[in-house]
Amino acid sequence: MSYSEDVVISKLSSVNETQEAIVNISQWVLFHRRYADQTVKTWAKALNDAPAHRKLALVYLANEVVQQSRARKREEFLKAFSPTIAEALENAYRQCSPDLQAKIRRVVDVWRQRTVFPDDVLKGIETRLDDADKKKPKQISGGRRIGQGMAFSLGLPLELSKLATAHSDVQSKVNTLGEAVASANKLYSAVTEADALPAPMEYASQIEKVLTSVNGALKASDDMLQSRHELIRQLEALLSVNKAALESETNQHGVLEEKKQKALDLQKEVSDMILGNISEPSNDDTNHDIDIDYSEDRNSPLDKEEESVVPDPVYKPLSETKPSGEKAQALSGLEGLDPALVNFLSSLGEKDGSSTPPVL
């Protein structure tokens, strides 16, 4: 198969973490070692654009290529990777989860143990990865970190985390699919719409390129369809959960409204009872200090006793005294005298048993 950038993109888009896929693609890459610079440039772009779960496969592919190059004592890819490998790995490392980062670190450790790259290149890689670790966002609730994709941001609940992951996966594949489809369409049009047919061998080579490109586009399309179906499934699951919750909460709201109305009615009844007791008091609550019936109290034994102890006046005016006939005749000559004197003289007469007071 002849070399072209579209073919490289197709190869890289189909790579996965299986040993078979990595070995087969690395052999094709090594066969076209004279295009090492262009291949590494395309690889770096694919690594940057790939979703997190595919970045590790591309790192494994680079590892296979450079280790095979060193074993075969071919310097093309070692020289091509050296200027760009540190930056490419740092970008991938920053976008990966901790478990993927640990696997990338493991690859770098193998490179140092086997002296795959010169010491300055290895030191540059390790320095960049260390800097990436130092600049990690602070931990938030749930142990997730901001900046590691939507699924790991903001301490999202499990349902939203799954949805965010599915959405991020779809978005990461949009550019890959678009590039693969555009390349396949371009090659297909060039072959099928040519004004004149080339020589059979050249024509067969062109058709092979078209098939390779179309297969790559189909692979990218399959990946996109799977991701899109997963996103829709997560959306439907989230929608279903929220619809059920909405129905339950609506019923609960209605029950609370009924309880509120019953409490208001009960409050009104109690208020009316309180106001009724204030406006119409019972006999026990009557204020006796306001209306008192004295009709019976005037003849009570207490009042009669009080009347019995009231002393008689020391004397009574003559006008209020009604003496007997004989006494009246005896006192007729005493008119004009002081009443007190008259009474005194009268009492002397009574003591002597005489009805006639003494003549003064």
Results as ranks from 00 to 15, higher is better:
residue 4 S to W: 05
residue 11 K to D: 00
residue 15 V to F: 03
residue 23 V to R: 09
residue 25 I to G: 00
residue 31 F to L: 09
residue 34 R to T: 10
residue 34 R to K: 14
residue 41 K to M: 06
residue 44 A to V: 08
residue 47 L to M: 15
residue 47 L to Q: 07
residue 48 N to F: 10
residue 49 D to W: 10
residue 50 A to D: 06
residue 50 A to E: 05
residue 53 H to L: 05
residue 57 A to Y: 01
residue 58 L to I: 06
residue 60 Y to W: 11
residue 65 V to S: 03
residue 66 V to G: 02
residue 67 Q to L: 06
residue 71 A to L: 15
residue 71 A to I: 10
residue 72 R to V: 03
residue 72 R to T: 11
residue 73 K to W: 03
residue 79 K to Q: 13
residue 81 F to Q: 01
residue 82 S to A: 14
residue 86 A to T: 04
residue 86 A to Y: 06
residue 87 E to W: 00
residue 94 R to G: 00
residue 96 C to Y: 01
residue 96 C to E: 10
residue 99 D to M: 11
residue 100 L to Y: 11
residue 102 A to N: 07
residue 102 A to F: 07
residue 104 I to T: 02
residue 108 V to C: 05
residue 109 D to F: 09
residue 111 W to H: 12
residue 113 Q to P: 00
residue 116 V to D: 00
residue 119 D to H: 05
residue 122 L to W: 05
residue 127 T to A: 14
residue 132 A to V: 01
residue 132 A to N: 02
residue 134 K to R: 14
residue 136 K to Q: 15
residue 140 I to L: 09
residue 141 S to F: 13
residue 144 R to E: 09
residue 145 R to K: 12
residue 146 I to M: 13
residue 151 A to N: 03
residue 152 F to S: 15
residue 152 F to A: 15
residue 156 L to H: 08
residue 158 L to H: 11
residue 160 L to H: 09
residue 160 L to R: 12
residue 163 L to E: 08
residue 163 L to I: 04
residue 166 A to G: 04
residue 170 V to M: 03
residue 170 V to P: 00
residue 173 K to Q: 15
residue 174 V to C: 02
residue 176 T to F: 00
residue 178 G to V: 01
residue 182 A to R: 06
residue 187 L to V: 05
residue 192 T to W: 03
residue 196 A to V: 10
residue 199 A to T: 07
residue 201 M to G: 04
residue 202 E to D: 15
residue 203 Y to Q: 13
residue 206 Q to R: 14
residue 207 I to C: 13
residue 207 I to Q: 10
residue 208 E to N: 11
residue 211 L to H: 02
residue 214 V to H: 03
residue 217 A to F: 01
residue 217 A to V: 01
residue 218 L to W: 02
residue 218 L to A: 06
residue 218 L to Q: 07
residue 220 A to E: 04
residue 221 S to R: 05
residue 226 Q to E: 14
residue 226 Q to W: 05
residue 227 S to Y: 02
residue 236 E to L: 14
residue 239 L to W: 04
residue 245 A to Q: 15
residue 258 E to Q: 14
residue 264 L to M: 11
residue 268 K to P: 02
residue 269 E to R: 09
residue 270 V to W: 12
residue 270 V to H: 08
residue 271 S to T: 10
residue 274 I to W: 03
residue 277 N to T: 06
residue 277 N to Y: 12
residue 278 I to R: 08
residue 280 E to A: 12
residue 281 P to G: 07
residue 282 S to P: 01
residue 285 D to T: 07
residue 287 N to D: 15
residue 288 H to P: 14
residue 289 D to G: 13
residue 289 D to W: 11
residue 290 I to T: 09
residue 296 E to Q: 14
residue 298 R to L: 12
residue 298 R to D: 09
residue 300 S to T: 04
residue 302 L to R: 12
residue 304 K to I: 09
residue 305 E to N: 11
residue 309 V to W: 12
residue 315 Y to I: 13
residue 318 L to R: 14
residue 320 E to L: 04
residue 320 E to C: 00
residue 326 E to H: 06
residue 328 A to N: 04
residue 330 A to C: 02
residue 334 L to R: 10
residue 335 E to W: 06
residue 339 P to N: 15
residue 339 P to V: 13
residue 343 N to F: 06
residue 346 S to C: 08
residue 347 S to V: 08
residue 348 L to R: 09
residue 350 E to K: 10
residue 351 K to F: 07
residue 353 G to M: 01
residue 353 G to A: 01
residue 353 G to I: 01
residue 356 T to A: 06
residue 359 V to E: 15
